[in-house]
Design a protein around this nucleic acid. Structure first.
Lengths: 256, 256
DNA sequence: GGCCACCGTGCGACAATGTCGCACGTGCCG
DNA sequence: CGGCACGTGCGACATTGTCGCACGGTGGCC
């Protein structure tokens, strides 16, 4: 049927599918959805498959019928399942630690703070404390800057909470932070050099789920000498290690 | 970014937009959405415009920022706004009445019954009762058969409630009803000849909103002699009147 | 108060993408 | 046990979504 140009047809159709499923309590067959919207079976099935993938609809394993999914409710209570992120990232984190020779952290935003979801020690180091579950300041760490770069409200919240200075290098003004976040977006990864602890640096990159939504960040941290060159710029090899790992986890999440 | 083939990219993206908007309490700018999902501004804007059109997001008129819309909540409480359907159909209903020379009804499903949303009298007839707000049986009227044809759960409900016989022509078996509904889907309009009241017939067609979702039906009713030929088949001219009017209202709704 | 930069919006062309037809295998109903 | 109808997957085509660019307006900074 004629559809208004300038609007995305498949999104209109998917919203119609959701409305249709919401209209009645009964679960619907593919054929019924196709009939209701005057679509070919294939097209309806393709839309349903995608909606199922993103969690907006669920398919009853027995009857093969579709109903609304839990993902829609989560929109109200807003949030990503951190356990899934952690589980998906476990394998890759170890590999990153051994390849880079540095400790690895995986983080996500929670209440305007960075929560460390997973932590892998530096391979050849003995005395380290387990950071899992710990909260980090978003504006002073590479992990945090990645998460802020792709989440505007969190930036405002962080500024409202005050940009506390931990070292002389900590970004304490909204201007400086905004510039750093913009740089992070452009190149796709974040760098933090002595902004949180003296002598230490961090490199982090975003972990994306389907649609490109940033659901977390993964990064390495170590001494400035090991992560940076003499001009305090991040070493390309280490950046590549982080980036490729982040992309691998993203691909993994998107295929779930 | 690489996306899984077999899935619809724009739907994945739109779900990511919704999740992003749900993640924080703050309203987001187009730029912020685009940055967060690593999309060009244009693409993000196109997705947001479509989501706004279907009611899943709303744009603050002052700040131009986007937030989640009421349409998402309506999914939980499932239902179409009947007032909008009525308002949109008012003008066209009058025109249909004068062109066809018959009375016009607009109906929608409510609790497995057909509720008459709007009613226009037959032009040259004086004594008629206003049907607006009245409930009609779905299986015995043309309006109802259109609505059932595109809503499978309602069919089950109607069968559970019992297919009451009003005349000798009323379809009282699930089989006969299913066949009639299938026929209705194929040709895109419904016919009812002496199934509800003796001597009277009805012709109805679906009113579709965006995505093709059937939100209501519009039809004419009159004596069998005026609506049908000698073989009790619907007159082509009257069918065309109903169909073109239904299409016009659908276009109107889709452009809202 | 003026300037500049950024943002929201719209258009157009290209190519990627969604759509559609067809066919397979399966489960249910008769 | 046979037949039908449904869910699912694949592939080719053409439509459609995407992206780059440019305009007008607004807000912020100096």
């Amino acid at each position: 049927m004629s559809h208004v140009p300038g609007l995305i047809q498949s999104i209109e159709r998917s919203s119609a599918v959701l409305r249709l499923l919401a209209a009645g309590p009964g679960r619907l067959r593919v054929k019924e959805v196709a009939d209701a919207l005057a679509l070919p079976k294939s097209t309806a099935h393709s839309i349903l498959r995608t909606l199922e993938h993103v969690g907006f609809v669920e398919q009853d394993p027995d009857t093969a019928r579709y109903r609304l999914g839990r993902g829609l409710l989560d929109l109200g209570h807003g949030g990503i399942d951190l356990n899934e992120l952690r589980g998906r990232a476990l394998n890759w984190a170890d590999a990153l630690a051994s390849r880079s020779g540095e400790e690895v952290r995986i983080g996500a935003l929670r209440d305007d703070k960075v929560v460390v979801v997973h932590h892998v020690f530096r391979p050849d180091d003995s005395v380290q404390s387990l950071d899992t579950g710990r909260l980090l300041p978003p504006h002073a760490t590479a992990l945090g800057k990645v998460l802020l770069a792709y989440n505007a409200p969190a930036v405002e919240a962080a500024e409202r909470a005050g940009l506390e200075a931990y070292t002389r290098g900590t970004l304490t003004t909204a201007r400086a932070l905004a510039r750093s976040l913009s740089e992070t977006r452009e190149r796709g990864w974040a760098l933090s050099v002595e902004e949180w602890e003296a002598g230490r640096a961090g490199i982090a990159a975003p972990v994306r789920s389907f649609g490109g939504l940033v659901v977390g960040a993964i990064g390495i941290s170590g001494t400035v000498e090991r992560l940076c060159d003499t001009r305090r710029q991040a070493l390309t090899v280490q950046v590549e290690h982080v980036l490729s790992t982040a992309r691998a986890i993203s691909r993994d999440l998107a295929a779930s």
